[in-house]
Amino acid sequence: MEVRGLTKRFGDLTAVDDVTFDLFPGEILGILGPNGAGKTTLIQLLLHVLTPTAGRIYVFGLDLDRHREAILSRVNFSSAYVSMPSSLTVRENLQVFARLYQVSPAPERIAHLLKLLEIDDLAAKITGTLSSGQITRLCLAKALLNEPRILFLDEPTASLDPDIADKTRRLLRRLRDETGMAVVYTSHNMKEMEELCDRLLFLSKGRVLASGTPTALRDRFRGGTLEEVYLKVVRGEA
């Protein structure tokens, strides 16, 4: 994915300001920033649910604005702030999205993902009766249905207990290694970002303040941990 000069203004407010970056196959890119930094706006732009004021986004060599359908069929998204229809069972929800993404053969793919995310025993359960952690895993299963080449995850482990969060991170790394899937990841959990991401973008007031590998950023800003680097960068002390 190539993002060039991406800008989004809402009246006088510039939510995303001239952001340029690349995402490579198999890369896990973390987007960091304080609340209101423009992370969610950036992800919305990359998913074509928000129109940019300026700039271009190319995915798989195609212009996102002109090839929305072809691109979105090969990417997917999950967020702690989005849910799934609560009256349907886990399996029914996945069947609906499998059809939406034209997944074939769907039953095998669904069975595989239910097992992979350790929710196979919940397949016949009504989604509304699941815990928030179980719903997050269902949303992740939905996001993996179409074997996406790029996966957008907005705070995916926010409602997971440490055990399941760790398993989720391991799973993402495994999928990345096995399939070459790229991941765009946002989280306020610095330890998680440090552990998981190959590269980080620091956003503040819509601008990229710094980018690089976690190690390079720690060295550059002389921080012992990513959290120290984060605090220095967002407080303008770096």
Partner: peptide, 11 residues
């Protein structure tokens, strides 16, 4: 059901 975004980030 907070499902609208799931639909419109799909094709």
């Amino acid at each position: 059901s907070r499902n609208l975004l799931n639909l419109f980030v799909s094709p």
